[in-house]
Write a protein that binds this DNA or RNA. Structure first.
Length: 474
DNA sequence: CCTGGAGTTGTCCTA
DNA sequence: TTAGGACAACTCCAG
């Protein structure tokens, strides 16, 4: 093997699949070390919340995009599978690396693993350092005056805006050194990230994974959606949200670049509303860091005694596959199944339906979302589900039960979103699409076997409120 | 330590 | 048809 002309540093890519604004990569370059881009497939190290199938499908394409970007610059991605620490140590040895740099991930299991890896690498005599690559604020950076973690969003975000100091923007390097193959490398295709059979084909009409796709999504948002964002974001029948969530999850774009490009565009009040959504992402990571059990357990222990419905696989299955007979719910669940994504307003509606009308534990919903969303993110998922269920930090009050018919009439007034995802209802007039059971015999005849609601909305709402009331007495 | 204002995204009933 | 209050207190957080 030819020795490299300059000492090298491993740049360990994880959920930071980009070349711009990449602190770990910049650190290597700044130290005068030749970066060796490394990716290690090690799902067994991620505990109970290893990436789901949709997430893997996205990751495959995002890694391929990153590899292409690297090749354009003379480098490439070195892919491995197996134990992360052992791989880093052996790749460092075979490339003569002096250092290993990476950007932090904040999931509890990963955080623990990485702390151990850093210690071990240092004991091997390597420089090992982690950087912030994914957040505007590290989870420990903001605290209340009393020195506690925030439990309420608004004061958290106020403190964030006060402390606002995002990093400057860094272009991607023009050129990167070429490396010889490293022993133990495998092909990206060998990782098994792509589904078999290829049920993900329907995803890619909607998405372009990778740094370029992220930049395009941001540009499209700024050009044509930002100016009506505060209203438009609630309309699943229009594509007026940013659709940046998977790009942000995989670190194909840095949040501070999103914020910076936003700064140069759009009405200030619309910008602020969107920025607040980035704020929720920050808040979710803050909460997960300080309360690491919240992906699995109620944040509010009062709910530990709550009487969820008896497990019913058929009901859960009907929800998962969009066969509940409640049109807006089924539309959302089918959109998720078909595209790996669901509009945020509809996420709230289907989550409320699962946890309140079906009274199924939020954990089952969180698990399904984790496995099926291309933007599956432990922090956001835990916060969102506990928020809807009423068990979480700064959560919705328990008596807030979404009425899926009213929600559909309000946010999908013509029933266009429903018609797109529930073809059985296309033959009905708009108003009947929201609640086909009210359409009478003629209407029902046109619904082509679409099921009757699996639960009575009014009755189940009252049952949920009663269950909550029983909790109060304890 | 005390005080007071505030808290992402709703729904239903009543007047 | 529409507007207002109830729903349930509780806890967070700043001053």
């Amino acid at each position: 093997m030819t020795p490299s002309p300059t000492p090298t540093a491993l740049v360990w890519f994880r959920d930071d699949l980009r070349l711009r604004d990449h602190p770990a990569l910049q650190a290597a370059l700044k130290a005068g070390l030749a970066p060796v881009p490394v990716y290690i497939h090690a799902p067994h190290e991620e505990g109970a919340w290893a990436p789901g199938a949709a997430s893997d499908a996205w990751r495959h394409r995002s890694l391929a995009a990153l590899d292409a970007e690297l090749r354009q610059r003379g480098s490439r991605l070195h892919v491995f599978a197996g134990d992360s620490l052992a791989t880093l140590a052996s790749v460092a040895a075979s490339t003569g690396a002096a250092a290993v740099f990476w950007n932090r991930r904040h999931e509890p299991a990963i955080d623990q693993r990485d702390t151990r890896i850093r210690r071990e690498l240092r004991q091997l005599g390597l420089r090992a350092e982690a950087f912030n690559g994914s957040l505007l604020f590290e989870p420990w950076q903001l605290e209340t005056r009393a020195g506690d973690p925030f439990r309420v969003f608004t004061p958290f975000w106020k403190a964030a805006l006060q402390a606002w100091n995002p990093p400057g923007l860094q272009p991607a390097p023009d050129h990167l050194p070429t490396m010889d193959p490293v022993p133990g490398e495998v092909a990206l295709d060998a990782l098994g990230l792509q589904p078999v059979p290829r049920w993900d084909n329907t995803f890619w009409d909607e998405w372009i994974p990778g740094e370029q796709g992220a930049a395009l999504a941001l540009q499209a948002f700024i050009d044509s959606k930002l100016h009506t964002y505060s209203e438009g974001r609630d309309r699943p029948d229009r594509a007026l949200t940013s659709r940046l969530s998977p790009h942000l999850h995989f670190g194909e774009i840095a949040p501070w670049r999103v914020a910076a490009e936003l700064d140069a565009a759009g009405p200030p009040d619309e910008r602020a509303v969107f920025l607040r959504q980035l704020g929720w992402r920050e808040f979710a990571h803050h909460v997960l860091h300080h309360f690491p059990h919240t992906p699995d357990d109620n944040f509010n222990p009062r709910f530990d005694d709550f009487q969820w419905a008896q497990p019913d696989a058929a009901l859960l299955r009907a929800w998962q596959r969009g066969n509940t007979g409640v049109p807006i719910v089924d539309a959302g669940m089918r959109e998720l199944w078909t595209t790996g994504w669901m509009h945020n307003r509809v996420r709230m509606i289907v989550a409320s339906f699962l946890t309140k009308n079906l009274r199924i534990h939020w954990r089952h919903g969180a698990r399904w979302f984790h496995d099926t969303l291309v933007d599956a993110d432990l922090a956001n998922n835990a916060l969102g589900w506990q928020w809807v269920a009423g068990t979480g930090v700064d959560a919705a009050p328990y008596f807030r039960v979404f009425n899926p018919v009213l929600q559909a009439r309000k946010f999908d007034p013509q029933g266009e979103y429903i018609a797109r995802w529930v073809p059985e209802l296309r033959g009905l007039p708009a108003r009947a699409r929201h609640a086909p059971w009210e359409a009478g015999a003629a209407g029902l005849a046109a619904t082509q076997g679409y099921p009757h609601p699996i639960v009575d909305l009014g009755e189940s709402r009252n049952d949920a409120l009663a269950a909550f009331a029983r909790l109060k007495g304890r």
